[in-house]
């Protein structure tokens, strides 16, 4: 589904040049649930932005199915992002004076979906996420967990094939964090591809595959200990065994 070949991302010029990603090769299959781990500043968010067409790689190739994404024009990249990708951010990226309904509606408006269909979709999504009672509440009045559910709702409302989550539990307590991750697992089971960025091995434990980035270079360990809730699992060749 997704193939990254020798992806490099350089920020700045001259002495201020920072190589955020350095020759990343990665393949993500349809229906995969991948965690991208790494320390702060390792380049994982940059990778997510490139995967989500929010940024372009300085060099390298990005293929999504048969589409050479790196070669798309800005306008086509916008359309591609609109059709395929849903985002979930650590800080929720919700507009505080929107209601839950309006927040979930936003990507549907961007897709020109007619009003009645939008309503149906939103009702289905909020029911699925268990936030029907919050539909008319302002974002600013919600708790962190509720906000993140709303953000997930927004990401899935437009039937995105790929959901990219950047530290989705970073601003939540462990209970809410677990619930959100379970939600991602369910979405993955429904057939969506999910990429979760995290530095928390416990959160990563919910994913099927794991990759680790250090200083912009992908490091996939043969043996990596991941703490998944209360048990210890071993990762081999990037896959939980």
């Amino acid at each position: 589904m997704i193939r990254l070949e020798n992806i490099c991302k350089i920020y700045g010029t001259g002495e201020g040049r920072v190589k955020a990603l350095n020759g990343i090769d990665l393949t993500i299959e349809k229906g995969d649930m991948l965690s991208v781990m790494g320390t702060s500043g390792s380049g994982k968010s940059t990778l997510l932005n490139i995967l989500g067409c929010m940024d372009r790689a300085t060099s390298g190739d990005y293929y999504y199915d048969d589409v050479h994404v790196s070669a798309l024009s800005a306008a086509k990249l916008d359309l591609f992002r609109k059709q395929k990708i849903g985002f979930v951010f650590q800080d929720f990226a919700l507009l505080p004076n929107y209601t839950v309904y309006e927040s979930i509606e936003m990507p549907l408006i961007a897709q020109n979906i007619p009003g009645r269909k939008r309503r149906k979709t939103i009702e289905r999504v909020v029911e699925r996420l268990g936030i029907t009672n919050l539909m008319d509440k302002k974002i600013s009045t919600l708790s962190g967990g509720q906000k993140q559910r709303c953000a997930i709702g927004r990401a899935v409302a437009k039937d995105s094939e790929l959901i990219l989550a950047d530290e989705p539990t970073g601003a939540l307590d462990s209970k809410n964090g677990e619930e959100i991750m379970k939600l991602f697992c369910e979405l993955n089971e429904e057939g969506r591809t999910v990429v979760v960025i995290t530095h928390d091995t416990g959160i990563a434990g919910y994913c099927k595959r794991h990759v680790r980035i250090e200083d912009g270079v992908m490091v996939t360990h043969d043996q990596e200990v991941v703490v998944e809730r209360d048990r210890i699992v071993t990762v081999k060749d990037g896959r939980i065994s």
Binding site: G52, M54, A74, A75, D78, L79, R81, K82, Q83, F87, F89, A93, L94, L95, M106, P107, A110, Q111, R154, K158
Partner: peptide, 16 residues
């Protein structure tokens, strides 16, 4: 900036 970023992330295009 953030607001515009949110719009982009949610599928609004540069043209919009």
């Amino acid at each position: 900036k953030k607001m515009y970023g949110i719009y982009y992330a949610n599928g609004f295009t540069s043209k919009d």
